[in-house]
Write a protein that binds this DNA or RNA. Structure first.
Lengths: 220, 220
DNA sequence: CGACCTGTTGATTCTGCTCAATCAACGTGG
DNA sequence: CCACGTTGATTGAGCAGAATCAACAGGTCG
């Protein structure tokens, strides 16, 4: 169920806001042909496992989940991507993951303007992705449920540059499948952190971090 | 405790044996200056977390573990590397991991001959590493102990191109820290697979796979 | 030989999962 | 407007799988 809608932004995120935050991005954008932003509604598939992979994707606004399924239906979300981030790297010409819009996302497809030297600008982004994945290995392999949750909240707070108030565009099951937990456990841990006065939960989709230090202590 | 010993190989692995197995490697080697092979004895540190990162490392023989530690001492091994594989990619100029020889390994340092176009040959290797890490996320996040072990044995068998007999140069604690288990659990699972006639354990450092299908069924 | 290290096995504990009930928010149709 | 169904989140009770604690066996090296 692939839904493409051309959707033009008054102010593209990439060259300005996102460019400042991710210096590697500007170099890549300088080497790509201009492209319109496609709007993917909630839960729309951006690409599927097994499809041909040819280009990269830039998140203009909204959020995206990247995941894989086991044959018996278990899901592992390997990454979330927010505005200004690039995804879609593959080692061969095929996608090995699903990419879906979480909450309605605007995606710009990046096509190289010239084949030459494109690797120079892609490599830093791929390495950043590798570092993130390796960090997440530590979380999945060696942290307990509370530590996982703390690491997740701190990561989001850092990427959103928010001093305390963190948006959670994804639902509890997404968080669970990212952290290798069940959604019930996610709910329980949030409850525990709330009771410990470490966070507030003003709404289902927002967390306010009251005590950064406590979270940092947890995940180390 | 960094131990460097110059150690010359009669027949370098890279241009021949490993070159055939990893086509991406030849391109990279063509762009690097010749270098001697350094021998790292058992458990010798190749580089440490926090050190400056400047070049890449090629395994000529032996095996290497890449890992990180939490502040309270828990260890997550993010990858093992064998002959013909390249490691040491970093997103910035600092190592975020430890690299250690497992069993006595010969390592060739790869220094670019010219700065130009080096990204073209590094990118495929970095993407391969990214794919591996993402696959491992699924294993750590969503598989139980038996499934983890099965996936590990199949991965090793595939990389060693062995039809059944798999070498385990690392000890049980290494396997555990790679799979997010304890070494006792690793031992028990191997026992279980042995009792089920899926594997034989001719020696502590060797596994013979008797029933590939059973292992494949397990990890899906 | 004894000390040490690695691996195996057993007994017990506990974290997080499974199953299940309940609640709140939202949309639809009468 | 309200009754109804649906979906997501929360909470509880009981259970299972892996961790922890502990004992012991085999091999190696001084």
């Amino acid at each position: 169920m692939l839904i493409h809608t051309n959707f033009r932004l008054a102010t593209p995120v990439a060259p300005n806001g996102a460019g400042a935050k991710h210096p590697e991005l500007s170099a890549l954008l300088a080497q790509t042909r201009p492209a319109a932003v496609t709007y993917y509604p909630e839960n729309a598939i951006i690409y599927a496992q097994g499809e041909a992979a040819s280009h990269l994707y830039l998140v203009e606004f909204g959020a995206v989940r990247i995941y894989r399924l086991t044959s018996d239906g278990r899901r592992q979300i390997s990454a979330f991507h927010f505005a200004g981030e690039v995804f879609g790297f593959e080692a061969d010409s095929e996608h090995h993951f699903y990419a879906e819009s979480i909450d309605g996302a605007g995606i710009r497809i990046l096509r190289p303007a010239s084949g030459d030297g494109i690797a120079d600008s892609v490599l830093p982004l791929a390495l950043r992705g590798l570092t993130r994945a390796q960090q997440h290995l530590l979380v999945l392999g060696r942290q307990n449920a509370s530590e996982k949750m703390a690491a997740f909240l701190l990561d989001l707070a850092d990427r959103q540059e928010a001093d305390g108030l963190v948006d959670l565009p994804m639902q509890r099951a997404d968080i669970a499948d990212y952290l290798g937990l069940t959604f019930e456990t996610v709910s329980r841990i949030l409850r525990k952190l709330k009771d410990a006065r470490i966070i507030k939960v003003p709404s289902v989709k927002q967390i306010e971090i009251l005590n950064f230090t406590a979270l940092e202590d947890l995940c180390e």
